[in-house]
């Protein structure tokens, strides 16, 4: 029964989806990495009395690293990811296939 179900589910997939799924995972990975960076610098350096803070360009180091450097770094990473790992593809539904099915 469950085997039969599995073969039913194994239909031929739209070939574009493999790349689409990969791109979605890139987005997810970037988001999680961004969270880790933000958390590690923010609470890593900020977790002491303000009297002991060090400063970068006038900002407390925890803030500079997590919010300013982090924002710039992840903007650059987002640009790198879409430039190198996102592929151009047509988004239109395949008309030929649809016509075949309807006939």
């Amino acid at each position: 029964m469950s085997n039969q179900k599995n073969t039913e589910l194994e239909l031929k997939e739209d070939p574009r989806y493999k790349q689409c799924n990969r791109e979605a995972l890139w987005g997810l990975a970037l988001g999680v990495a961004n969270l880790v960076w933000w958390f590690a610098w923010g609470y890593g350096l900020g977790n002491k009395p303000p009297e002991e803070y060090t400063y970068i360009l006038g900002f407390p180091s925890w803030f500079f690293m997590s919010c300013i450097a982090g924002a710039i770094l992840f903007s650059l990473l987002a640009i790198a990811v879409v430039t190198f790992f996102f592929k151009d593809m047509p988004l239109e539904a395949d008309e030929k296939y649809r016509e075949q099915k309807e006939n």
Binding site: Y17, A24, G27, L30, L35, W38, G42, C67, G70, L91
Partner: peptide, 24 residues
């Protein structure tokens, strides 16, 4: 300000996760 920066990923996250699959 630190809290507000949690919105930072929205620009890339939404579009990448829904992505082309959603558009297709």
């Amino acid at each position: 300000v630190y809290l507000a920066m949690t919105q930072m990923p929205t620009g890339y996250f939404t579009l990448a996760v829904l992505g082309k699959k959603f558009a297709i």
